[in-house]
């Protein structure tokens, strides 16, 4: 019984961990690919401030 409960918890945790990791990484990438990676200061200019986001969206600044 305890083994069953424990193993269920372990498997569930494992799955949640993997899903969390996947979502986290995707969100991080989104940020890098979007305007989130640009510092909004005047020294930068779109389309080509060098941040990944600007190269895709053109409207970060």
């Amino acid at each position: 019984m305890i083994v069953m409960i424990l193993s269920n918890i372990v498997v569930a945790l494992l799955i949640i961990l993997m899903l969390w990791y996947a979502v986290h990484t995707i969100r991080k990438q989104r940020k890098e690919d979007g305007c989130g990676s640009c510092k909004k200061n005047s020294a930068h200019s779109c389309p080509s401030s060098g941040c990944k986001g600007c190269s895709y969206s053109n409207k970060c600044h």
């Binding site: 083994v3 069953m4 193993s7 498997v11 569930a12």
Partner: peptide
């Protein structure tokens, strides 16, 4: 292994 441990089919299926 998971079947013998009695893990729910939902969880083992996802994994």
């Amino acid at each position: 292994l998971l079947d013998s441990l009695g893990v729910f089919p939902l969880l083992s299926g996802i994994l």
